[in-house]
Design a protein around this nucleic acid. Structure first.
Lengths: 222, 222
DNA sequence: ACCTGAACACCGTTCAAGT
DNA sequence: ACCTGAACACCGTTCAAGT
């Protein structure tokens, strides 16, 4: 005679496995070990020890899972400097952190571009902290959102650039058709020694930040 | 009694159909009418009136076809201003043109990031013209490539942003958790009236260009 | 309420067989 | 040399059937 089933018995609630948090965490594990090419609904289900079709009781689509990941990652972006540092310094800290998070997740960038902020609380929290920092620095309200969007565009573009092969600008057999560019590539390479993406990001960041700074009230003169 | 086959007869050479140019042109037609979601090796083959497997005698993969398209589009980018206008003006013309071409082709952006310039003659020609303009403006050689890469990053990021829905920043039910950002979004929207991406691009372009300009020799003082 | 297993409608790509 | 047709090894997603 079998014992009465223990499942759902002892008064403690049934342990839900396929929550948004668990799915997101499992997805990040799969991506971490197998990359985005290896991240399929099948591999995600396997990690959770469940049939692929079971996922669709909790997520509407793979796109939705990607949105969960995206919002999760936003919490890793460092916005702390906006509460304490001067604006120029704070934007640099934020931009470097933002880029470094998404360099490892470039396939998400097309997802971000479509991400509705109303369903992404951590993304929204980041924007709130950044906006607070801009206001504190004396930015006029209507100029803040365009500036944030412009900075984000630069950050996402730079994240893509960071995953490009180093030798992308080798002109090869076409060198004689592009003497100026070929020489410029050699000069840049001689100076930076293989960290081209980093150098380009810092140069661009410097330019945007100083460009924006130029139209701000001088601190202490408000 | 059948007539002798006319095929390959009359002394004129056999008309090749599946050339790189023809495939690229057909691909652009398919993308133009059905978008990138509708662009498959199957739909491309149908446009060329050929079996899908026939394509693999001329292109190694779908990725290669995408690279052909990418290089083809680069020829549309307007670099003419670098030959005549002052640097600031020329970069703006180039950047706007570059962005407007790839706004309609954002799925190519991840392809570009990996595109070897040695196999992309039109891309290389663009870089050559841009480099010439930078040199003419007095840029030091080693700073040119990082600056171009930074500008490109901003342009690609902005192209992504341009295809995002307008209401992406509606905070919805989370508005009370993000009062500063919600208010900033409203202020921006009141000023620009729905052309947010354009405004952000112009603001960012202005900042980078002025930021870079600040470290250039004054024209006429060389 | 939520899981399984089978099925569906696709993909890109390969390859033997033809001409 | 280059095309066809069939096949392969996948995808994401749906859905009837179970518990």
């Amino acid at each position: 005679m079998p014992a009465p089933r223990a499942r759902r018995s002892a008064g403690r609630p049934h342990q839900r496995v396929l929550t948004q948090e668990n799915i997101t965490a499992a997805a990040l594990e799969v991506i971490g070990s197998r990359g985005y090419e290896g991240f399929t609904m099948s591999s995600l289900a396997a990690k959770l020890q469940v049939a692929p079709s079971a996922l669709y009781n909790h997520a509407a689509s793979k796109q939705e899972v990607l949105r969960w990941i995206q919002d999760d990652l936003m919490a890793e972006v460092d916005v702390s400097a906006f509460a304490s540092e001067p604006w120029e310094q704070a934007v640099r800290v934020w931009a470097r952190s933002y880029r470094s998070v998404f360099v490892r997740h470039t396939p998400l960038i097309p997802v971000i571009a479509v991400l509705q902020v109303s369903g992404a609380p951590r993304t929204l929290a980041m924007y709130e902290a950044v906006t607070a920092g801009f206001l504190r620095a004396g930015w006029q309200e209507a100029a803040i959102v365009p500036a944030i969007v412009a900075l984000e565009s630069f950050i996402f573009g730079s994240a893509f650039d960071a995953v490009a092969p180093e030798d992308i600008f080798d002109t090869g057999s076409l060198a004689d058709q592009s003497p100026l560019f070929t020489s410029a590539v050699a000069a840049a390479h001689a100076r930076e020694g293989g960290k081209g993406a980093e150098e380009a990001f810092e140069a661009g960041l410097d330019a945007v930040v100083r460009g924006f700074s130029g139209q701000l009230p001088v601190p202490g003169h408000a």
